[in-house]
Amino acid sequence: MNQKYIVQVDDLKLVFEDGTQFSFADINIAKGKITGIIGPNGSGKTTFVEAVLDLKKPQIAKIWIDGKTQKDFFSEAKNRQNLGSQLQVFAFSETIKVSEMVALHKALYNQQSTRVYDDLALAEISSKRLDKLSGGQKQRVNLFMALAHLPSFITLDEPSAALDKTMAETLISLLKYIVTNEGCSIMLVTHHPYELDICDEIMTIYGGTNTYLETRKDFIENIIGSHHAQIFIGENDDAAAIETQIKHIADVKQHFRQNGHVDIFGNGNMEGDFLALVKRHNLKSYSFAHTNSADILKISTSYAS
């Protein structure tokens, strides 16, 4: 298998009792990069990650992790020394104290980063039992268990869920630090623009299958476009005529109408035609800007097709 990739999925099929099916193929997650996995709720992001982590039993699984078959990777404890995973569920016995989780981590991995401990501010909650922690505090412990040994392969599933803004920003800095200094690879399931901001590659999942896997630059250039225009349509505006004219603007890659506004994605060259359209229809409320992570998430979730 190609050593450039931390995860390779040639073929992965899962069928659940309720008939839900997931099918993934030809996925190569690059080493040393942060790969964001995005898509609508229920599209299969967590299922994909858990299947890669051998937590789901698929019908077909041709998966390699760090050059080893999935089976070989998980059959030896020493391989898991280099794995750090933050799952959505953090369900340890409620009467365990945070300090004991820290001690367990130390016993599991024999190494522990003080930077991770400090950044996640575990000292202030170390004497508390897990059942006395808030959702955000539990998430910090969950992240500590995944990151503190500075593993070479990390999977994170909505890591900043339940974190306050300050802690979410700290986490982003910490992830950047780990990738930069340790050269690790991260698979990051996310719905948050600030998490997507640090992703080098983007993989989209829609309807139980993978749709795109591109570098961030290519994803923007090929799928969305460098710019995002938005028009708010009032009651007196001729929405049908506006939409028809948008279709004729060169360089528009995608446009969507929803809840009284139209989103237009395309290259910067569309600016002139867009402004002419605004003027023609005397539209009062509009915007034109570079595409950002929020736009990428919008494309991959609300309107994905």
Partner: peptide, 15 residues
């Protein structure tokens, strides 16, 4: 514990 998903983490630890 298994039904709650607590053991998923154990599967991923070097344990």
């Amino acid at each position: 514990q298994r039904a709650k998903g607590a053991f998923k983490a154990y599967h991923l630890y070097p344990l």
